[in-house]
Amino acid sequence: MSHGSTKLNKNDISSEIDLHVNEVTVAYNNGHVALFDTTFDLGAGTICALVGVNGSGKSTLFKTIMGFLTPTRGSVTIGGKPVQVAQKQNMVAYIPQAEDVDWAFPVSVMDVVLMGRYGYMNFLRIPRATDLEIAIESLRRVNMLDYKERQIGELSGGQKKRVFLARALAQRGRIVLLDEPFSGVDVQTEAAIIELLRELRADEHLILVSTHDLGLVPSFCDQVVIINRTVLAAGPTHDTFTQENLARAFGGTLRDLRIDHTDAPDGTSNEFRVLSDDEEPLIFGHDGRLVDHWHPGIDEEESK
């Protein structure tokens, strides 16, 4: 058995891939405190959503977990080890936002996936047979094997996303960080990504997803961390992802629709609310034409 697979099995056996973010404060050189006294713990076999308004410190938190930023106070540990040690053992895989990638770069799908194996290769980064096998298997798993020779810019938005998922799979990272995975992705790919994340969860990975798609969160995340420069709420989705917590985190920035069918035929109370960070919705009447004014039963207000 080669060196790389030994390493890999060792990681598989150790179930201690929990993430501890302990009283982390991050201040930038200009004095801006992006995160203050942030504490939460996550264990293996979890999909956790990280939500908050722009500027709430989501990306600062991501960068701190990945070791790009060093906390001014507090610490981040992965499986009990400092981030830098965990990284060297390929425990942290990262899937970038589509805007952060230069899609015209002269690399093929296979090149990108093999980059996930760099940490296992020798210092010349020459792939061994194991690395190639794992890269191919990872591409097969995201259904992208047929495209392995394509230049990455020649793919659709969803395919691009899947290539980077394959890279994370090839890296065998126990913790997978996804930055806005659903932006610019069609519904079909969205479902495919969620399906794959569920498989990874079943496989005892810890997945942390930073997302704006609040509506999707309950459908696949079992944990939620809501932040606004510190943790406002953290815990199981059912208890944490509540109207009250979201209103505190997003106060004023979300569209809050109250829809009240008091005229429902059976007379039962049927009120529900829609929280949305989307643009103004288009509302159509029964006749398929635009409704100029809000329906009397729908009352829009900016939540405070």
Binding site: M66, G67, F68, Q84, Q87, K88, N90, V92, A93, Y94, P96, D100, V101, D102, F105, V107, M115, G116, Y118, G119, F123, L124, R125, R167, Q171
Partner: peptide, 21 residues
């Protein structure tokens, strides 16, 4: 000796950092 590391750094510095380079 280092072109592959430099390539990864040029293409995706975050990934380079996240695998401990």
């Amino acid at each position: 000796l280092k072109w592959k590391d430099l390539l990864l750094f040029a293409f995706d510095p975050n990934q380079a950092q996240s695998i401990g380079l």
